[in-house]
Structures are given as structure tokens and as C-alpha cells.
Design a protein around this nucleic acid. Sequence first.
DNA 1: GGTGGCCCCTGACAAATGTCACGGTCGGGG
DNA 2: CCCCGACCGTGACATTTGTCAGGGGCCACC
Lengths: 210, 210
Amino acid sequence: MSGGSTPIRLLLADDQALVRGALAALLSLEEDLTVVAEVGRGDEVVPEARRRSPDVALLDVEMPGLDGIAATAALRAALPTCRVLVVTTFGRPGYLRRAMEAGASGFVVKDTPARQLADAVRRVHAGLRVVDPTLAAETLAAGVSPLTERETEVLRTARGGGSAADLARALHLSEGTVRNHLSAAIGKTGARNRADAIRVAEQNGWLLGE
Amino acid sequence: MSGGSTPIRLLLADDQALVRGALAALLSLEEDLTVVAEVGRGDEVVPEARRRSPDVALLDVEMPGLDGIAATAALRAALPTCRVLVVTTFGRPGYLRRAMEAGASGFVVKDTPARQLADAVRRVHAGLRVVDPTLAAETLAAGVSPLTERETEVLRTARGGGSAADLARALHLSEGTVRNHLSAAIGKTGARNRADAIRVAEQNGWLLGE
DNA sequence: GGTGGCCCCTGACAAATGTCACGGTCGGGG
DNA sequence: CCCCGACCGTGACATTTGTCAGGGGCCACC
């Protein structure tokens, strides 16, 4: 494929240096691909992309500074010609939706065989969309988050652990209100605990930043 | 180094196919290393190692079937000549201790630069021990788990979420006993919640399977 | 034989949690 | 306009949770 013309320029973003380097090694084996930049934080994606102007960016979702979804949106805004392929550990149904809404061209789970990654990159670069089919089905099934904005916020804050009173102080709400939102969230998630509700919401990717 | 003699034979175990393949690509760049086996589950490590008889095994801690620590012990028992290098995502202080106790020769976090991995493999193969220095310090600081056997068991079961009554049924205990164990665990971990205690214990690697 | 640790249970208590019914504000859409 | 839904708050209530003071059994160690 791709007969000898200029190779596809790649930017890699992953917080784990070892994985980042390994992915670079893997992709560098392909003649039509070249890794021109590597970053370990979400907020370094756009600055580095400006410097190196890659064709495709591979972004992890879990990153310090700025998560991969937010980084996707920022990158699409800054360099519209650069395509984004999100590569993530967890197949949280909501992640896929959020990534696509943020302007990603592809979404790959780290479970997929290594061979397919290069192809995914090429497809994305060609303007096609790449999506894990089973994950797409799950996304449809899980649907959009049933949680209201405040409920997500309360649940997100509750993740750190702490009493309802603590949450109330942190969010400038009354303790009763916090408990009400939590109760609503528990009902909507089908959970029976506060902790349970957090787990469910997290699994479905309903707790992503903003 | 290693002037042209037979290369070091490696087995890779990681549940994420992409990472596994990428690591294989990374390590295959080194002339004195060759990847002879790849598995995605902990319980496949020993059978595959028997077939391919690698010199060094790189094992992830988080794996289905059998976690990396248990796989380490099993592998050491089955093939004593095969050294083990544990490669993990999380630098849980307790993981390092458990891995060393299980007979691992090295312990590397996925945050470390990709360049150092090949050297770590060579050192391990040479009979040396490889340990992340900062992590070693943390391990010393965190110390051994203060939790009693039953306390860990209860806490581990409580991870799934559920009321004290549920746990009592699952563990064939009285509900009061469960609450007592939980209370003790909460006290020892310095937490203020049940959920908090679980987080702390998990972070320190105190909840690993037997 | 005594002591101490871990285990299991009981019962009781204060605190936190989850639920409900209720009232009020605000904005958008029929 | 008026209604609905999201949002904030109150107060009250049953349940759950975390804590404490006990009791007894077992085992290891001095």
C-alpha cells in the first residue's frame, strides 16, 4: 500500500512512557508511517501538534492535565486538518460517544490485535471512520447518560469519598440537596448504594469532565 | 553487549493485545532479544512457557485468569531457570513486595522510559535484580498490610458493592461480624468510610488474591 | 498454666445514608 | 400564558453503617 510517497506523520499521546515508546516502535515498523511527536500529558498535545503538524494523532483517554476527549476537541479546533484516533484501555460505552462528538475519526480499544492498529491509522488518515463494532453496539445499548447535569457533578465529586456534608461544602449546596441528587442518581443507575452508583456511572463513561 | 551469541528468549504476558504487540515490536528491535511467546491470560503463562522455554518472562499484574503475582509463583515453580520481570501499570507499593516474595527478579512500572526496558531484561537475565528505586522507598514506607486475613477478605468482597447483609450471606458470617471487620479495616487504613477503606487498601496492594 | 492474638457472635447506640413529600425558582416550549 | 422539567431547599422518616463493650473458642508462644 501507499507507494513510496511521503509517509503519514503521527503524534502519540499516552501517559505511560513504556506503552508510548512501544507503540512508537510498533508503528515505526510500517514504512508509510512515521512518529514525529510523543507526549505524556493531555495539555501538551496541542502545543506539540502545532510544532510538528502531524497528520494523525493517537490519543489515550486517561491522561493527566487534560483527558483525551478534551484534548481531541482542542486539537480539532487548533488544527482541523489533523485527524484524531482515540486509543483507550477501557471500552466505556460513553467514551466512544463523547470522543465522536468531540471530533474524533476513530476509536480503538487496547484489546485489539496489534496488526490492526496500522490499518486503523491509514483508514483514519484516508478520511474514513474507525470504530470497534462490538463497542458501538454497547454504546447504542447504554444510550445517553440519564443523569442530569447536577447529578453527574455531585456523583463526580462523591468519587473522592467523603460524607454528604463534605460534598455539600465543596459544591456550595445544602446537605439535603446533595442527598437528593445522590438518591436520584442511585435510582437512575439502578444501583443500591452511593458507591454502586459511582461504579455504574463510571463504567458507562457518564462521569467525564464537563 | 552480548556479542552475537544466542539471543535471550522472551515470553510476554499482558491482557491488552495492543500493548503486548507493541512491547514485542519494541523488544524485537534489540538484536540480543527475541520474543518467542505471547499470552493474554495469566493461566496461559505456564503452559506456554513449558512449550517455548523462555529465558525471561515479562508479566503484567492485571490479567484475567490468574494475576501476575500468582503467575510468577506458578512459573517459578514450574520452570525455575526462567526469570520473571513484572511489568505493571500501577505502582501499588504492595505489588512490589508480593512480586518479590513470589520469586520475581525485577519490577518495572509502565511509566519508565521505553529505552530502559531492554536493559532491565538483560539485567534480569544476568541474574541481577531490577527494582524501581522510588517505588522501593514507597514500599518500605507503606509496610506490610496491617489487615488481618478475614479483614482483607471482607474488604475484597465489599469491593463489588452491596450491603453488610449481602456480604454476610456471601461469606457465611453474621452481619454484625462483617460490620466489625469493616470497622477494624476502616480504623487500620485511616479511612472514614467503607468505600474509603477499599480505595486505600487497593492503592496499597493489600487486596491481592491470597 | 497464663497471655495474647485472631476469629466469631451478640446487643445496643449514635451517626450517616437513602427515601419521601412538599414548596419554591427559573427557563423553554406547546 | 401555563405547564413541565431541572434545580434548590426543607423536614421527617426508616434503614444502613460505624462504633463500642462485651462474650466465648481456638491456637501459638512464653
